[in-house]
Amino acid sequence: MATRIDVNGLTAYYGKFKAVADVNLTIEPKNVTAFIGPSGCGKSTVLRTLNRMHEVLPGARVEGRVLLDGEDLYGAGMDPVNVRRTVGMVFQRPNPFPTMSIYENVIAGLKLNGVRKKALLDERVEESLRGANLWEEVKDRLGRPGAGLSGGQQQRLCIARAIAVEPQVLLMDEPCSALDPISTLAIEDLITKLKSSFTIVIVTHNMQQASRVSDATAFFSLEKTGDPGRLVEFDKTSKIFSNPTEKRTEDYVSGRFG
């Protein structure tokens, strides 16, 4: 499991505002792909189009195609609910459901899909929490509120919640930006471990992070405020950070811009 994603001619709008224009890229299975770029360049927007979360915002829409193993997510008959179950997502700020315990948070997605058997749920909770490197820390207090954990633990809980429904792809929108350095390191370790089972796409504004965890990197940028963001360069991470083709990429990764 884990699928390839092809993005063809993708343009995303917020109402009349064109946020990002004409993006083409291919995300390889069981790889970590990083989206980097200055703020406002549309990297998070592109990420959100990959599981049809973009259209949740009022007035937001998408043109172009996003192919998941060749099947267009925006094609006729596609159900966004099923798309989101297949393409999981972790957000910038940890957002465990505040009214639920740790256990209930992990199984939230499974319960939606009608899994009721206690034994299966227990098994999946342990599996997911182990997968998110959180099991040892919380196994004695699964009934406590998820919101009572530290920020880093909450984010790993959210990752456990996302992988519990066994998605093909995991999208991460700046998952460490609200965390301290130690928690960040824990999440980065986790990402490296998770890529053996999932296709991972991560948005980050931290270039060291991109170079540490990703196999491929996409650099987005925009000419000036108000213009749509564009994909400037997409290549192997090592190439982007050592010998990029585009001048703008080099300026950005060397810290001369942005």
Partner: peptide, 28 residues
């Protein structure tokens, strides 16, 4: 918070399930 609503949707919740998981418990 929008974050809770989006968390539910990103798990593959329908609109009603999003309400049941994120909106109603928070608003109860």
């Amino acid at each position: 918070p929008i974050a809770h609503r989006e968390a539910a949707l990103a798990l593959g919740a329908t609109r009603w399930e999003m309400i049941r998981v994120a909106v109603l418990p928070y608003g109860k």
